[in-house]
């Protein structure tokens, strides 16, 4: 399983990189830390003509505090550097927890923020070697009109299994996408699509350059449920951001990750909790909305019934943690 042959390019500036993308899409694959790209290239899920490494682009590096108090995170900053960042650690311990929840330290020493946000969706009928896929037969993502995960599904239902998006969505982070045509900034929430094949709105000639987190004094909680701590994809994650303190909140933003094709907002659950408070009644009422909010789930990596139960568990635990946070 060697890598497929490609042209490897390592631009020294963003402009240089965008120029490559202008001339050569869609056969270009951006490379952050490569921890997912190399894996997928070995499996021939990705066979790019050109690999464009973002590692030496200075514009994509680092954490800065902007004049309005927002934080700007460069997309090619490694997760390890985000975990170690003193400003993030002080202001957003739950965000740091989410970054640290990704894979293993070995992977985080290479992986970038942009790579985690753009991480391709995963499915165990697809994320296999080419021989394996050939034996099973292709699917929506690999060129045929069949979904192996949900019989008859018209769209690919592979999971968004990345750990940092829910937490960043909860704090209303925005992402900036740059191309030779210019730049656009949009809420991270709107970056994701409910389609396992084109799972983000990123255009083939665009680069995610930075993430901006607006200042906030709200509480933030992040939880990840996984088979193994310290080295595993999630069965499910949750991020909740709330104002107020104790059992009172007037605004709640709840985002579930890893259960569906895009991170899922639980807005109805949030409303119930605002109305009833974060006590056990509020939690029960919020949990009762989960089945509808999630809709049909796949059996990918864990059974659908478990995923549903896990969503309730995560919600309950996260709210309890939130209401017990010191003011």
């Amino acid at each position: 399983m060697l890598l497929p042959e490609h042209d490897f390019i390592k631009p020294r500036s963003l402009a240089e990189g965008l120029a490559v993308l202008r001339d050569a899409p869609p056969g270009v694959r951006l490379l952050g830390g490569g921890t997912d790209v190399v894996f997928n290239m070995r499996c021939r899920l990705m066979t790019p003509d050109t690999v464009l490494s973002l590692r030496d682009i200075p514009e994509l590096q680092g954490v800065d505090v902007l004049p309005d108090g927002s934080l700007r995170l460069g997309a090619a900053t490694r997760l390890t550097d985000l975990v170690a960042d003193p400003v993030l650690r002080e202001r957003y311990p739950a965000l740091v927890k989410a970054f640290r929840a990704v894979a293993s330290r070995h992977v985080r020493n290479m992986a970038t923020l942009g790579g985690n946000l753009c991480l391709d969706t995963r499915c165990w009928f697809t994320n296999q070697t080419k021989e394996w896929r050939d034996a099973k037969g292709p699917c929506l993502k690999t060129g045929k009109d069949v979904c192996h995960a949900i019989q008859g599904s018209p769209i690919c239902v592979a999971l968004n299994n990345a750990d940092s998006p829910p937490a960043l969505i909860a704090v209303d982070a925005t992402v900036t996408l740059a191309s030779h045509r210019g730049e656009r900034t949009l809420p991270l929430r709107d970056f994701y699509r409910e389609d396992g094949i084109r799972h983000t709105v990123l255009e083939p000639d665009e680069v995610l350059t930075e993430v901006t987190i607006p200042p906030t004094r709200d509480r933030l909680v992040f939880l990840k449920e996984t088979a193994r701590q310290g080295m595993d994809f999630s069965y499910g994650t949750i991020a909740i951001r709330a104002d107020g303190n104790g059992a009172r909140a007037t605004r709640l933003h709840i985002v579930l990750g890893s259960l569906t094709t895009a991170p899922r907002d639980l807005s109805t659950a949030g409303e119930r909790l605002v109305a009833l408070g974060l006590g056990d009644d509020g939690i029960d009422a919020a949990c009762a909305t989960i089945r509808d909010a999630l809709g049909p789930l796949t059996n990918l990596y864990s059974p659908a019934a478990y995923k549903r139960e896990l969503a309730r568990t995560l919600l309950r635990k996260a709210i309890v943690e939130l209401r017990e946070m010191p003011a």
Binding site: W124, F125, W132, A135, A227, R228, Q229, D232, F233, Y301
Partner: peptide, 21 residues
């Protein structure tokens, strides 16, 4: 197993505990 195929033929998806466990 999915029919005759292994769905988790990797050290990532075939779980063995690690340090924390």
């Amino acid at each position: 197993m999915d029919g005759g195929q292994i769905l988790n033929p990797s050290r990532l998806e075939y779980k063995l505990p690690r340090t924390y466990e």
